[in-house]
Amino acid sequence: MAFIENWLTTIRTRTVAFIAIILAVAVTAVSCAGGTPEASAPAGIDPSKVADYIHTVLEADRTAYTKHVISRAKVLEGKEKEAGVLDVEATEGWQQTDGIPLPAQMFRLGSEIANEAGYFTYNLISEWYINDNHAPKGDFEETALATMTETGEAVKDYQEIGGQKYYSAMYPDIAVAEACATCHNTHPVHLERYPDKVFEVNDVMGGVVINIPLGDA
């Protein structure tokens, strides 16, 4: 549908805008990794701040899509929505039914486009994952997810994967609308795996993890 393509185009544009910011991290990254930048080199941007910038845009786009598209659809996973005004269904099987993607799916579509550029990656992570690709991977994600779920605060640290150093940050993924909680609570996989877990609006449902590779400028 046209507005889905427009949304993806917006994600691509904003991703390109991040590139200049990410490049500015290089000097700071070398310093944090033990390197010695030239005295005349610019100070660079703290990678923690860069991660915050990226997350702010990701969160804004996803929240806007959830509140102003999904929440206005007439049907959500086969169930009529009383306040729906858009003659479309929001469904996990959107490609087979000519519907529109759920928020997590739209988020993943954007991440696949951004990840191809290689400047940074991002993904959804959850203790109560439905899609196996959203399970925590590695020590940082497992530890950060447990800490973040308990405190509700972002967790940030440096890590090394396959010889590549990264600055990684995980932010709480909040159920910003009733549609978020309803989709998870009624999903067959959720009911099978986590029958006692019932999400409500504003609950922490998992995390958004951002990985920024660190290297030479």
Rank of each mutant, 00 (worst) to 15 (best):
T66Q: 08
E5F: 10
S48Y: 05
R72C: 01
D98W: 10
V204L: 01
V198R: 12
A29D: 11
G207S: 06
G84N: 09
W7F: 10
F3W: 14
I212S: 05
I19W: 02
F107K: 06
A104G: 09
V176I: 09
R12W: 02
W128I: 03
H134S: 10
F107C: 00
A179P: 01
N115D: 12
L23F: 09
V176S: 02
F199P: 04
I22M: 13
D216L: 14
A29S: 15
N6F: 03
A73L: 07
G118N: 09
G215I: 10
R62H: 04
L76Y: 03
G84I: 10
V208W: 00
Y122A: 03
G44S: 13
Q96I: 00
F199V: 04
P213G: 05
L214Y: 05
T15N: 14
G118T: 08
K49N: 08
I70Q: 06
V57C: 02
D98V: 07
Q96K: 15
I11V: 15
T151Y: 04
Q95M: 13
I11A: 02
I212G: 07
V204M: 02
I54M: 13
V75M: 15
R14V: 04
A169E: 05
A33S: 15
T15S: 12
S40F: 11
G44W: 13
W7N: 04
T9Q: 13
L124A: 02
V50T: 15
G162I: 09
E82M: 09
V204W: 00
A169D: 02
W128V: 04
T182Q: 12
